[in-house]
Nucleic acid binder design. Structure first.
Lengths: 250, 250
DNA sequence: TCTGTTATTCTCATACTGAGTTTGTCTCAA
DNA sequence: TTGAGACAAACTCAGTATGAGAATAACAGA
């Protein structure tokens, strides 16, 4: 049955109401680890549990717009100005299992956001509490948000392979080592510094030199590092592949 | 605002109704080309235009289930039995621009389906007409279905690179050349037969030999080809990359 | 000044890819 | 029956990419 034929022949209000929400998996790197923005639920069901920020879409509001608004409400930053201007947001997936919310039919469209070290979230009027949680030490999550988050993490890890997304986690200017830190943090593996360095500089358009170096060497020694900024590539070619794990192939 | 806090505090029925539909981009290979299943709209708006099969989700029905049902209704085949048992269905993306349907707010969750040469669709009671259209010679489509279809095609092309999806377009048993034909059709490029052959056999778990060969040589000559079936790999490693196009990198 | 750290560059063996060639089987038409 | 062309399969070879390790040099801190 075609959607519009349905609409022409039936009154949707005669069907049980369907609520459409957006949920945002917002990732940043803080304190040396990958973290996700969670809010603590104030109301039933699942009151007291942590959940992804999200909410009902508003009339006249597009989906990506709703996701940006939800994120802005939690971080206190506007999408238009300030550091949030560099935030990357993309659609992740949709979840609509009939019983995922015990009260009514809720279809949730999830978005994935990446950004360099964001400020502490402010608990809005609608959230009891909000904070950045290390993804490797998560509390129990409300609804099916653990599944959504797992999906977001896997998407983020995959996207580092063939897009310059890692630069979105770094500052405006960064060193190759900082970029390597992003990969190591998100992938949770150690990379060979020399090979990584060679690879980054050999992928066309990934990074471009600023001609500058850091003000001083590293905290524990070492020479000053050259500074780079993000290049103009939208895809990395050849891709920067994770070390293959046999278990994910079969 | 969290979805459930919203729900606890507000009556969703007080908001304008939101309709949730699924739309299916069903792809198959027929007549030497890649084709998509389209139905001709019988009702306004866009009556007479072609559209992707889809429809309203039903109470108690999960999203993938709704997509499978819509596809089954158009093809006349059940997902549980027959050739449709081998169909691959995955979620594509969601579309919810406020004005994408002129009558009311409609959020559509699109699904992508691949299958070997499917039978002719039967026009259901709800569709004026249904048929497989070559993707390189499309009619004008209703709503934003051109965008959804373009997204589906790009996803399909990408998935051939790192998953054994191509085998879902081939029959139960196939030759390396047939598999190469799938890649050439979906990607729209010519591949080097020798290199392709070497590559397919070198990727662990992509295909496994049946020990058999075709009954006779090709229509225009050539030796009998060995027959293979799909292997147990879920990811291809190393991946089978498309020839890089500069324009998609920058 | 000495020691340990780290950025950057090299080396070298192995793996993968693109392009072309070789061998032998098969269909079709003269 | 035979020759031409088609095609599966395997091979060659040069160019490129990757993994592992080592070398070099700049720098922090003791």
């Amino acid at each position: 049955m075609d959607e519009s034929e349905f609409l022409a022949g039936y009154d949707p209000r005669a069907y049980p109401a369907v609520a459409v929400t957006v949920d945002v998996v917002a990732l940043t790197i803080r304190g040396g680890g990958l973290r996700v923005l969670l809010i603590r639920r104030a109301e039933q069901p699942h009151a007291g549990l942590w959940a992804l920020p999200g909410g009902f879409i508003r009339p006249g509001e597009d989906l990506p717009q709703a996701a940006a608004r939800e994120l802005a409400e939690e971080t206190g930053l506007s999408d238009r100005s300030g550091p949030l201007g560099r935030i990357h947001i993309e659609q992740l997936a949709s979840y609509g299992a009939p019983e995922r919310d015990p009260r009514m039919r809720v279809v949730s469209i999830s978005y994935l956001a990446f950004a360099p070290d964001l400020p502490d979230p402010r608990a809005g009027s609608d959230a009891a509490d909000a904070s950045w949680h290390p993804v490797d030490k998560l509390p129990e999550l409300a609804f099916d948000h653990d599944r959504i988050l797992a999906h977001g993490l896997e998407r983020a890890r995959g996207k580092l392979e063939y897009t310059p997304l890692a630069t979105a986690f770094a500052g405006e200017r960064f060193t190759i080592s900082e970029l390597r830190g992003v990969y190591e943090t998100v992938w949770g593996v150690q990379l060979h510094a020399g090979n990584f360095h060679r690879k980054i500089l050999s992928v066309p358009g990934f990074v471009e030199s600023t001609g500058e170096t850091t003000e001083s060497g590293g905290a524990r020694g070492g020479p000053r590092a050259k500074l780079y900024r993000a290049g103009d590539a939208r895809l990395l070619h050849p891709a920067l592949l994770r070390p293959a794990r046999e278990e994910q192939i079969r």
